[in-house]
Design a protein around this nucleic acid. Structure first.
Lengths: 308, 308
DNA sequence: ATCGGGGCATAACCTGGGGTTATGAGCGAA
DNA sequence: TTCGCTCATAACCCCAGGTTATGCCCCGAT
């Protein structure tokens, strides 16, 4: 009955009851790759009966046969192949989570100490850390997230080896390299009138429409204000990107957000991008380090990963 | 010790031991949203002590304090906010998995029966199903995945209401609407010589280089052969997109793959896109239905979701 | 033909994580 | 004060998922 309640509210319901846990998904990927329950079991460090039962209960849970068992191996069924591909996305997200969490934990005595602004730490760093781990598995990385000023301070005080910031200005005392470009884009819920526009929105129209905004002082807000000439009209001000997204999705109004932050939502049509013209909403993402101290060693390794 | 083995091999190690399970992550998201352990507990349908202990053990596991508890509520710490954002990606992947799995399970007696080609079923459908569920929570959807011919057959025999195919030709007897464009792109491992090219690759160069390919007959292969004039030279032929990606990542050589299939890998720099010119590597993604039978009801709902 | 070994399943057992109820202890508002 | 909200602790329970021990099946090698 509390099931009903949860269901009725968010629509999310207890995912955990309907989706196999990470261990089971990893096991499934191993089976897919190795073609044998026993071999997969060995790889993930459990016994063959445990693997057998785990897969079986996953099939029960999903209501779909996943593997064809034969006396000389196991292959995925068609449905199994599909499920495995979907599972892989969960596992990849979990790997990124793990890489990030590990960096967050190892605050001290790491070989590479990174300081990054929130947007970069949220959306890009976990992927980079995974890539770095793949190349140099023994590099311990620590992560500190904060705004541009905090990043600069960490670098200058020697508490961090490499920094990442988004924004227009490079803090004093730091050298930088542009590693990517981020575009701020206008988004609305699919139901909003703007969602059906074909003609691009004019800057004046954007400036005169009340928007859902981050609080004054956030990087995103600064860029937007600058682009509009200091004029963005707030409909509401919220303190996190996530809150802004939630408000937009629920139809409260349009917002201007980083492309990075809404990639997922755009892909699954929870948000719609509104074309705009005549406004410079691009900003650089930069790696930064103390003037003169060119990154070396692991810092150089990470830096080179971040450039296409 | 088997831990060591797994570690040495894939580098993956037992993720499940280092990443909190889905239930814990959902709980964390609820805490973030509601600002109280008790409220979050109620939402996910457990008691307050259970939530308290769950969060605490998650903090132990990660080695990071996630929430600031006070007698009048709980707020995320800075690290907690970051972790929560990473967690959200896992949960979203899990939601997509769930939507897909549910559609796979409910083969019969669904209000909307969808047939889709593998690429679309893998990468796009789960997101659409989530969006559909958000709009019309009571629509039961079933999914059948197969190649274009199978999709056509299902539609014509009345076993499916709406189909999705990628490819150049629309099967006979079906009407279609283009819902998106997919680009095949050339990718290599970051270490490959092509990864550093600035000048686009010429078609002739691509045609004369041995590539990692899907087996003959796959949609991707067909488009590539057509674009090159029937010439793609195989270095190896593999039977799944996943296998091709793995081979490319490991440095075996370049491949031509759907943008959809490698979005993640590009984002985290496991693969690099190589610019190409003079080759038409675009293909349409189409919704299809039996000639005359314009989609209505839930099929129309899904169809409208898929168009930007 | 038969034996060995890889593959999977079943059975009986054990453990611990995560759930529950019951209770207590801060803190703020009425 | 006292209520009402927060979170924490304690004692208990259950079962999912692990283990070992075994058996069956099939194939290929002796």
């Amino acid at each position: 009955m509390s099931e009903e309640g949860a269901r009725a509210f968010g629509g999310a319901g207890n995912l955990a009851h309907r989706v196999p846990d990470l261990g089971a998904l990893e096991l499934l990927l191993a089976v897919a790759r190795l073609g044998s329950l026993g071999a997969a079991a060995r790889e993930v460090g459990i016994t063959q009966p445990a693997a057998s039962s785990r897969i079986r209960s996953m099939e029960r849970q999903l209501g779909v046969a996943l593997v064809d068992r034969s006396p000389r191996g196991s292959r995925l069924t068609d449905a199994g192949a599909l499920v495995t591909d979907w599972a892989r996305r969960i596992v990849e997200a979990a790997e990124a989570f793990d890489a990030g969490a590990q960096a967050l934990r190892d605050r001290r005595d790491s070989r590479l100490r990174v300081a990054a602004s929130m947007t970069i730490a949220e959306y890009l760093l976990p992927g980079w850390l995974l890539a770095l781990r793949a190349e140099r598995p023994d590099t311990a990385v620590s992560l500190l997230a904060g705004n541009s000023a905090a990043v600069a301070q960490r670098l200058l005080s020697g508490e961090a080896d490499l920094g990442f910031v988004e924004g227009v200005d490079v803090p004093h005392g730091l050298d930088s390299a542009v590693i990517a470009h981020d575009h701020l884009i206008v988004v609305t819920a699919p139901g909003h009138a703007w969602a059906r526009r074909r003609r691009p929105l004019a800057a004046s129209e954007l400036a005169s429409t009340p928007l859902i905004l981050r609080e004054k002082g956030s990087g995103t807000r600064q860029v937007l204000d600058a682009a509009l000439g200091g004029l963005a009209r707030p409909l509401i001000e919220l303190s996190s990107t996530t809150a802004v997204k939630a408000a937009v999705v629920s139809g409260a109004g349009p917002a201007v957000l980083s492309e990075l932050a809404v990639r997922e939502e755009l892909a699954m049509r929870r948000l719609v991008r509104v074309p705009v013209e005549g406004v410079a909403l691009a900003r650089d993402l930069r790696a930064v380090w103390p003037t003169g101290h060119r990154p070396t060693g692991p810092a150089r390794g990470l830096l080179s990963l971040t450039r296409g």
